[in-house]
């Protein structure tokens, strides 16, 4: 039995761009450009090739200690293996949902999971109120309790068309299709230009699309 030369291992969790490109709206070159971005994000505090929560917060807020309910939810959804870090494959597959060419259905489903804070399979009134309060706190906006209750009640009654006190996936989908701006933040135009945003990589790209 001979020895096989070990394949070059980039970092734990690294996956081949061809594999990721086949599963996402990205081309191979775009996945390679995303690897450049990933390397930058994953080495900003701990240089281990994995994005830790603090690194994610640092990238989003320029502050590693800034806690935010929504950023936490995004991090948790990106961390598919739920091991406390975002690996390269998880990063690319999750960002694929934010690609302008990704199916709208995927964006709607992702937003649903994002807002289903307690993983019950429904968006409940308490969850909606918790998110509104978090947003107001984040934005230093002050509204009276009455007004907050009215906003939550009104939105909930519009979305909960079955009137059972919770928003299911079907109701959520219908609500978003009626109000498409709700998933505007689920599309990142940058992703179409990722190889331009990181031009240094294009010069060293090994694969031509």
């Amino acid at each position: 039995m001979g020895c096989y030369p070990s394949k070059q291992v980039k970092t734990p969790g690294y996956e081949e761009p061809t594999v990721l490109a086949a599963e996402t709206p990205f081309t191979v070159s775009e996945v390679e450009a995303l690897y450049e971005l990933f390397k930058k994000l994953s080495s900003s505090i701990i240089d281990d090739g994995l994005i830790h929560k603090e690194e994610f917060q640092l990238a989003l807020f320029k502050n590693r200690n800034k806690r935010n309910l929504f950023a936490d939810r995004i991090f948790d959804l990106f961390d598919v293996k739920r091991n406390g870090v975002i690996e390269f494959g998880e990063f690319v597959r999750s960002l694929g949902i934010f690609h302008p060419n990704a199916p709208v259905e995927d964006k709607i489903a992702f937003a649903f999971r994002l807002y289903d804070l307690r993983h019950t399979g429904f968006i409940e009134r308490e969850e909606l109120k918790e998110m509104v309060l978090a947003l107001l706190h984040e934005s230093d906006l002050i509204l009276s309790d009455d007004v907050i209750e009215q906003i939550v009640d009104k939105t909930f009654s519009d979305a909960d068309t079955k009137g059972d006190g919770k928003i299911d996936q079907e109701e959520w989908k219908a609500f978003v299709l009626k109000h498409p701006s709700l998933i505007k933040n689920m599309t990142l135009p940058y992703l179409k230009d990722i190889t331009i945003v990181f031009p240094s990589f294009v010069l060293s790209s090994e694969v031509e699309d």
Binding site: L60, D72, R73, Y115, V132, V147, Q150, L182, V197
Partner: peptide, 26 residues
Amino acid sequence: TAPVTMNAFELISTSQGLNLSSLFEK
């Protein structure tokens, strides 16, 4: 009054924590 007609999900979607474009800033 204006706030009562506000869509709560619309409000939430403006969170900075959901604006991933910051990840691409050099």
